[in-house]
């Protein structure tokens, strides 16, 4: 009896975390505009409606572009840094490692505000728009994608010693050949995981984007927040559901490459 209650309680904790996502997915199929329970029927039409609403379609495309470019840049820069951090020895290494991970420790709100005033100053100095542009958002989101890549690639490199690389070099392979034939394949799982996590983090980020968006140049999470401040309806639920499904699929792919329980701590 006790064991049953114990299991039920623990099950309820996991269920409570998933409950809001299940609720919003359910709502997206309701056949009425105004929420009431139980629903009168079920329909797919809110998904069509969501795509026809300009702010969501444009927000989705903007977020996709932003996350793809920010993750692409982050993976290049972050993988190079992670390789040096794990394989090279030089003074100040520990400090630089901490510095590269620190953007994840600074609260998003404080960092977002800092970027806003910084961009205003730079705009005044060089007379080019940075706020409300894609390059401005990318510059901000690289602060998410670089640390995530460094963390995941470094973790995967730590598991494999330099022995194979040294052996290849001793057998006469040139540095570039060693990198292409030995190092890169060994790092592959870390790089793929870094790319996928970076993409998700950038795509879902709200705080860094909030002050940097502008008319026509807004991200999906910001558009959703603005909409939700007035109402929740099945159209918004459809937008949320698409994201949940997209992220779920990406997580299943990531799960094949890294041990997910190691990602947080």
């Amino acid at each position: 009896m006790r064991a049953v209650m114990w299991r039920g309680g623990v099950g309820a904790v996991f269920a409570a975390v998933l409950l809001p996502m299940v609720a919003v997915m359910w709502l997206s199929f309701f056949d009425q505009e105004v929420i009431s329970f139980p629903p009168e029927g079920y329909t797919w039409r809110w998904y069509v409606n969501a795509w026809e609403k300009k702010q969501f379609a444009r927000g989705f495309v903007n977020s996709l572009q932003l996350a793809l470019v920010a993750a692409g840049l982050g993976v290049f820069v972050g993988t190079a840094a992670a390789y040096a951090l794990v394989r090279a020895e030089f003074p100040g290494k520990a400090f630089l490692g901490t510095l590269l991970l620190s953007p994840l420790a600074v609260p998003g709100v404080v960092l977002g505000t800092a970027l806003y005033v910084f961009f205003v100053e730079v705009e005044n100095a060089i007379d080019i728009d940075i706020r409300a542009t894609l390059p401005g958002l990318i510059a901000a989101h690289v602060l998410l994608t670089v640390p995530w890549t460094v963390r995941l690639v470094a973790a995967s490199l730590q598991g494999i010693g330099p022995a194979a690389e040294e052996a290849a070099a001793n057998l006469g392979a040139r540095p570039w050949t060693v990198f292409r034939r030995i190092t890169l394949p060994m790092m592959r799982s870390g790089v793929v995981a870094g790319a996928l996590f970076s993409f998700i983090q950038s795509f879902e980020n709200l705080e860094l984007s909030l002050l940097l968006v502008g008319p026509g140049r807004s991200t999906l999470p910001v558009e959703m927040l603005n909409y939700l401040e007035f109402r929740i309806d099945p159209t918004l639920a459809a937008v949320a559901t698409i994201q949940i499904v997209l992220i779920g699929a990406l997580m299943l792919v990531t799960d094949r490459y890294v041990n997910l329980s190691r990602v947080v701590s």
Binding site: F14, V17, L18, L19, P20, M21, V22, A23, V24, W26, L27, I35, F197, I200, Q201, E204, N205, L206, P221, M224, L225, L228, I232, L236, A237, A240, Q243, I244, I247, G248, L250, M251, L260, S261, V263, V264
Partner: peptide, 19 residues
């Protein structure tokens, strides 16, 4: 357990608004 962490806070707040 990891999956909800990746879904944005806006989406999860929308879920609680539904409930």
């Amino acid at each position: 357990t990891v999956f909800p962490l990746m879904v944005g806070n806006v989406v999860r707040a929308a879920g609680w608004m539904t409930l």
